[in-house]
Design a protein around this nucleic acid. Structure first.
Lengths: 339, 339
DNA sequence: ACAAATGGTGCAATCGTTTGCACAGAATGA
DNA sequence: TCATTCTGTGCAAACGATTGCACCATTTGT
């Protein structure tokens, strides 16, 4: 790539010492230098097109101004907003983001983690849902600075930024109850995920409180296919057992759509469906999905804010930030059908 | 972060010189060292948990094993597959990817570009659709190694990996023609984008060849909103002028859906719609969208392959790779209605 | 048996910064 | 006036690797 000028070039051209040029170009040290010298150096630097070599700086300062972001899969539509939220906070502050995908594979996560360590990232933002918690504990033992996003830390006292999943689920259940539904089904995700636990517990609690009959089935992953096959199985064994479904997330809800269709059931006429996340295009599904909106972008922003505080030690960070969620009512929920 | 051991630690523990340890640990230089020494050093390195500091290496070798990827917006669903394709090729080869979003803003692109340069990336993969071409020319003048993906280079002789847009559009037009449609509309994207030009020209050509009546309207962006407002305007001025729409991409197609609905028209009964990209969840829209599938993941893979060849100079790279596309027929197209 | 080639290792420079320390000269205080 | 504090700058040592070169001890060729 281009052969850019270095500090020595700038220093020579400005007729000052290398170290003076360095200080003149750094906001925090430029006060040590006389204003005229600073101005001269900056002028020369601009003329020469000097840009700092962050690799060299990183070696010296042991800070790369780079944050590693670990996600399961960027093509899952909830992660791009999180990543952009992170980036929007970090970018203007001089940090870059290295995103890696683990595909929920522990070995892959370890490899990517090692790669990030070799690259000397200053911190980690972890959004992986269900890696075994020993990995997280390892990170902590190695003194890694990290923040969890969209999940809570298990196995290590890392701060976490999460949505208020419990009240989101409650809102979904209450919404269905208000439409006259009495018998509800919840599709929960993999048990390794803290998210799954919180949501299913909230579902049980809300149904109990409202006196509704509650069933739960487990899905092997947060995917359309897993939701579809779990729902298929349920409908085969329990036809006409429920009128409302609260899916663990929107992808599972889409799986439910598919399953209902293949069983000749209509949504929302026969079965109402509530999702979770309000993923992009949820409004364009067939029918438009009633779902809980989680503020993913904002979660990314907050996670970035916390990790920067940790790194730069400005303040002691909170242990947990819980952001509010809201129910978006669309076409997938309607008055309960008599069973 | 953790205080990891360095090469000197390994060398001392193994009783060899620093440089010997370095060579022993590097595949390309380990042949210079006796097998026993290599084994010993590797053993010690593993015991100490040594991992190389890529920042230090990068400073010395002037190669960071990092590729910058410039996209307009990661939340646009066609980009995550591209990024993952890039990553899947680069990751196993020791490279990492730095993704930046420009939001189609030239100033933002320049800022991000400068940031990537400061970070000494080894090359750039550029997926931004409509930045003014002078930026690309600048890159080239500065001796930047780069590859375009999902668009062609204008203003600089960079290699490009693209889908066969022209035949994709032709397939869409032919499909509509085979359903009896005679009067078609094309929604084209911003003219700055090479993609827009190619697709609209292909539309015109295909209609001419098949003797169909062709209209084209221009959208200000590749977004749902832009598609909707353009279509609104068209329908207001020309009710019942067309029976089939070929949208510039799937987002525009969704905009068309919205517009048709608000004009009391049904898809596909009144108007058939063909999209482009086969974005995730296109099958779950209302109705499921007939669209041209573009191999985004594979485009990412190929772009990554080319840039690595350029960087490592293994072979002379092709100027252009065009990947085949295919039409996915779903529920948004049906037999033409008599006008 | 002696010169030359070879194989293995050590030495030290280097990549481009940052930063503690030393030092000169000017400004201040008594 | 002389000792003391600033101010601004230069010097040089890091940071952690890679790599051309020199060197010694073998092995090889004749």
């Amino acid at each position: 790539m281009g052969n850019r000028p270095t500090l020595v070039d700038v220093a020579k051209a400005a007729g000052v010492h290398l170290s003076t040029a360095s200080r003149a170009l750094n906001d925090s040290t430029s006060t040590q230098i006389s204003p005229e010298t600073v101005k001269k150096v900056q002028k020369v630097a601009k003329e020469l097109g000097y840009t700092i070599n962050t690799v060299a700086r990183g070696l010296r300062t042991k800070k790369t101004q780079t944050i590693g972001v670990i996600v399961p899969d960027l093509t899952n539509p909830i992660f791009p907003p999180i990543v952009r939220g992170i980036d929007s906070y970090l970018g203007p502050r001089g940090y870059s983001v290295l995103v890696v995908n683990t595909d929920n594979d522990a070995e892959s996560e370890r490899n990517h983690f090692n790669s990030l360590m070799r690259r000397q990232v200053d911190g980690l933002i972890i959004a992986t849902g269900h890696t075994d918690q020993s990995i997280i504990a390892d990170y902590h033992n190695q003194g890694i600075t990290a923040v969890m996003v969209n999940r809570e830390a298990t196995g290590a006292p890392y701060p976490a930024v999460i949505g208020d999943d419990a009240s989101g689920i409650s809102m979904g259940v209450e919404h269905l109850a208000s439409l006259g539904h009495k018998k509800l089904l919840h599709l929960t995700g993999p048990t390794e995920s803290s998210t799954s636990r919180i949501r299913s517990q909230a579902f049980t609690a809300a149904c109990k409180k409202l006196g509704l009959q509650a069933k739960i089935i487990k899905c092997s992953a947060y995917s359309i296919e897993a939701g579809q096959s779990a729902m298929d199985k349920f409908l085969d064994q329990n036809p006409k057992a429920i009128t409302g479904v609260v899916a663990g997330n929107d992808l599972l809800a889409l799986g439910v759509y598919h399953s209902l269709r293949s069983h000749g059931l209509k949504c929302p006429q026969d079965v109402s469906v509530v999702g979770f996340n309000n993923m992009p295009f949820a409004n364009d599904f067939q029918p438009p999905l009633t779902t809980v909106d989680a503020p993913h972008y904002e979660m990314g922003v907050q996670a970035a804010r916390i990790i920067l505080n940790q790194i730069e030690g400005d303040e002691s960070s909170p242990v947990k930030i819980m952001l509010p969620v809201s129910l978006i009512v669309r076409g997938s929920t309607a008055t309960a059908k008599k069973l």
